[in-house]
């Protein structure tokens, strides 16, 4: 029974806290969705605004992640030793994300500069295919199938 007693001691705010965090998560999700709906009407040409809104969504996502881990998973009320063994290794993600996304972006720029075929193919507009005709690039193939 000693375990139960220990846990009650640092159990946090109880049901009141759960309701508070639920409200936070709901509000954050609704703001994310509102930004998402707003972004539908923003043209692709306004790159800066779209990037800014996507950045805002990522910040809201991190806030949601914090509330889930800190309160629902109870990490905020654990000992500092335990928090550190979990949070410090996860800090590697900061480097992972920066390094890999930078690398992907650099690869795109290199290909656009030195591979004219890649640039041409990925900037050529195409007609939207009809429902169910996925993956069949040549029109002849579709007609041939219909003839059989």
């Amino acid at each position: 029974m000693s375990h139960t007693a220990e846990h009650n001691e640092h159990a946090g705010g109880g049901t009141k806290e759960v309701i508070k965090i639920t409200v936070y998560l709901t509000v954050l999700t609704i703001i994310e969705l509102l930004i998402g709906f707003w972004m539908i009407d923003i043209p692709l040409t306004s790159v800066g605004l779209r990037m800014g809104l996507k950045g805002a969504i990522v910040i809201l996502m991190m806030a949601k992640a914090f509330y889930i881990v800190a309160y629902f998973m109870h990490l905020k009320h654990e000992m500092k030793n335990l928090i550190m063994t979990i949070v410090v290794p996860l800090a590697l993600f900061i480097w992972f994300i920066i390094a890999f996304l930078y690398d992907g972006n650099s690869f795109k720029n290199l290909r656009n500069t030195y591979d004219p075929y890649f640039k041409e193919q990925s900037t050529k507009k195409v007609e939207k295919k009809e429902h169910g005709a996925a993956g069949k690039h040549e029109e002849g193939k579709v007609e041939e199938k219909a003839a059989h």
Binding site: L101, G104, N105, F107, R111, K119, S122, T123
Partner: peptide
Amino acid sequence: GTIRFSTN
């Protein structure tokens, strides 16, 4: 994310 960043 890497693949998405490397595509036009």
